[in-house]
Design a protein around this nucleic acid. Structure first.
Length: 371
RNA sequence: GGAAAGGUGGCCGAGUGGUUAAUGGCAGCAGACUGUAAAUCUGCCCUCUCUGAGUUCGUAGGUUCGAAUCCUGCCCUUUCCA
């Protein structure tokens, strides 16, 4: 047994569950903060822990530059290195195949990156390399190297990416060292094409991964498309394994995806927004830069129990952001992460109480998106 | 008192006769952000009855078809000499 996944309750397609890795339990549906370069930006690990997060992300590509993973391995792995003793999931570098654009050259063997960070030095990453690096990092959940493509894309390109991702997934599976407490996830691709998604999901499912991710979403398509893809893709995945929607998303994305059978999420949204001024609250989103908050004595989110809301006003956060003070980024990131974890907690409670519909309805009613 | 340099839109600062309502940067006002090339990026940022019009580059005149740019007086600032 690599990692354990128990489903505690099902409510329509939503699931309440529990993943157990060597580094502890992850209650699902779960949101995993992104800590790409061995840091959840602007947070100490104590702060991340205080939000209730049970698993964070690291990234193969960023941690392979400068051979960082070798240092990390030597010093006892990523958990110890960054002082995070709970679970870690590492992305494979597949997202960078898309996000790094022209810096990337794709081959059957793997991906060549002209590094954005160390002067354009060429780095090559094969599926096997990715697995090896993620092992060196001591990642609890290893992701297969895949080819993530931007939407919209032609069917031909989408099919090619999906098939390459499948071939790479097999190689990843073969290269993975199966140990207790550690797992490997496959990633479904196929863009917004139903037949490709289903083919990808079925063929991925035929490989005995510890969990299955839906990749290549939230990459430019409307939410409606994303939900449609989930509607026909998730039912094709093994039911007794975790379903992970990669890179998603906004609170409303997450809610809709849980209703469609997703158990795990990660997204830069709360952390990046924490540095760019977007605040998530029970009543929706706000921009802390807006002039109206300069003298607002309220906390960011009324009734929020996070340390930021307990101790500081919107006016103070506004001041810190206008003054470009680091503390502002820290405090807002803390609040946003807390908000996300609180959302997940509420979702889990609602599944447990069989009141997800009611919770979702209330949440959507109260949650006003900027505009 | 003398000499030199200079006064440009909230601030700093380009421009030195004609695509200049005037480059940039900052501040300001909004927006974006979805497996992080992001403490980032984009738009707006003189006024108005705003797909056009009006008034701007210390100030008052002048030269010119045309001036922020050239000339003269005045005011002011900084530095140096007395």
């Amino acid at each position: 047994m690599a990692i354990k996944f128990e489903i505690l309750k099902k409510l329509k397609r939503a699931r309440l569950g529990k993943i157990t890795t060597k580094h502890g339990v992850i209650d699902t549906p779960a949101f995993m903060p992104v800590g790409t370069v061995a840091t959840v930006k602007a947070q100490t690990t104590d702060m991340v822990d205080a939000t209730g997060a049970q698993c964070i992300l690291g990234n193969t590509y960023h941690l392979m530059l400068h051979e960082r993973y070798k240092v990390i391995e030597k010093l006892g792995g990523l958990h110890k290195f960054m002082n995070w003793e709970k679970s870690i999931l590492t992305d494979s570098g597949g997202f960078q195949v898309m996000s790094l654009g022209d810096l990337v050259k794709l081959k059957e063997e793997g991906v060549a990156f002209s590094s954005h960070e160390d002067g354009g030095i060429k780095h090559f990453l094969s599926p096997e390399d990715s697995i090896k690096i993620q092992k060196a990092l001591d990642s609890n959940i290893t992701m297969c190297l895949d080819q993530c493509i931007k939407l919209p894309a032609t069917k031909e390109d989408t099919k090619k990416a999906m098939e390459l991702s499948l071939r790479w997934a097999k190689r990843c599976y073969d290269a993975f060292d199966n140990r207790s407490g550690y797992g490997l996830f496959g990633i479904v691709q196929g863009g917004e094409f139903k037949d490709l998604r289903i083919e990808s999901a079925r063929k991925m499912s035929a490989i005995k991964f510890d969990g299955y991710a839906v990749g290549g979403l939230a990459v430019g398509e409307p939410q409606k498309v994303m939900f449609e893809v989930l509607d026909y893709t998730v039912p094709e995945l093994p039911e007794n394994k975790p379903h992970y929607l990669m890179g998603v998303g906004t609170p409303l994305d997450i809610l809709g995806a849980v209703e469609r059978g997703i158990d795990m999420f990660d997204c830069v949204m709360p952390t990046r927004s924490g540095r760019t001024g977007k605040v998530f609250t029970q009543k929706g989103e706000l921009n802390i830069f807006n002039a109206k908050y300069r003298t607002d004595k309220k906390p960011l989110d009324e009734n929020c129990k996070c340390e930021t809301c307990k101790n500081y006003t919107r006016a103070y956060l506004s001041h810190l952001f206008h003054a470009k003070e680091i503390l502002g980024y820290m405090l807002l990131t803390q609040h946003n992460l807390f908000f996300y974890q609180n959302l997940m907690k509420n979702i889990r409670a609602a599944i447990k109480n069989e009141s997800l519909d009611k919770f979702a309805k209330e949440f959507r009613k109260n949650y006003k998106v900027t505009k």
